[in-house]
Simulated scan of single mutants.
Amino acid sequence: MSSRGLHTLSELKAALDQARREAERQEALQREIAAREKRERELFAVTVGPVQPLRPTGRARQARALPTPEPRQRQRDEREALRESLSDEFNVDTLLETDETLSFRRPEIGLDVVRKLRRGGWAIQAQIDLHGLRRDPARVKLNAFIRDAAEQGLRCVRVVHGKGLGSPGREPVLKARVRSWLVQKNEVLAFVQARPAEGGSGALVVLLKAS
């Protein structure tokens, strides 16, 4: 037999040996997996104890789409935080300027700033309309609006609260609430009643802190 034939037989034998070892390795691996699964079943049976399988009902189970998760706890926390931070019991009357529009300014803000705000010295960069909303939704929306406006670096915004003509007894309940809430917001430096063309007694022009 030629040397080439001997070489081919040697390679074939080596390949067969390798295939045999791989098959033995796979068999050992399968035995190990089966033994581990058996131990796990036995451990489960000892831990849980005897169980009775449910009888088949013959009813087909239809897969249903899961509802979209809602962060209800976070929403409750946020509403609670808003109720604590923007109180309805806050007495704002003593902080308002005693003019015909009951304007407001922080102690460090001069009267000239209020006059400039009333004349339209700052361009209105954003507004929110709370007209027609109930107290709690209005408070939540106003708080978020002022916070977002301040984070965006806005200086002058308009808050429309309505004139209260549709309220019971025609009393402008929301109007008074909005003034009280704004005074409690640290981002607010001053506010005045809007000019007639900007909403008049149904809106406020608010000056925010510079970012």
Rank of each mutant, 00 (worst) to 15 (best):
R4S: 07
L6F: 00
T8D: 12
L9D: 05
S10W: 14
L16C: 12
L16M: 14
E22A: 15
A23H: 00
R25G: 04
R25W: 05
E27A: 13
L29E: 10
E32G: 09
E32V: 04
E37V: 03
E40N: 14
R41H: 14
R41P: 06
R41S: 14
E42G: 14
V46C: 12
T47S: 15
V48W: 08
V48Q: 13
P50G: 15
P53M: 07
A63F: 15
A65Y: 10
A65I: 11
P67D: 13
T68G: 10
P71M: 06
P71E: 09
Q75E: 10
R76D: 07
E78L: 03
R79Q: 13
A81M: 11
L82F: 15
L82M: 15
R83K: 07
E84K: 14
S87F: 04
E89I: 08
E89A: 09
F90W: 13
V92A: 01
T94A: 07
T94L: 05
L96I: 00
L96W: 03
S103T: 02
R105L: 04
P107Q: 07
P107I: 06
D112C: 01
V113I: 04
L117T: 07
R118A: 08
R119M: 08
G120V: 01
Q125C: 05
Q125E: 03
Q127D: 07
I128K: 15
D129N: 11
H131P: 01
R134S: 08
R135E: 02
R139T: 08
V140Q: 07
V140A: 10
L142D: 04
I146A: 06
I146V: 13
A149P: 02
R155D: 02
R155Y: 08
R155E: 05
V159F: 12
V160N: 12
H161Q: 01
K163I: 00
P168S: 02
G169M: 10
G169R: 04
R170F: 09
E171H: 10
V173M: 06
V173Q: 04
L174F: 04
L174E: 01
A176F: 01
R179Y: 05
R179G: 06
S180W: 03
W181S: 02
V183E: 02
K185M: 08
K185Y: 01
V188H: 01
L189M: 09
F191G: 01
Q193N: 00
A194L: 04
S201H: 06
G202I: 03
A203Y: 00
A203P: 00
L207I: 03
L207G: 05
K209T: 09
K209C: 11
K209S: 12
A210I: 07
A210D: 09
S211R: 08
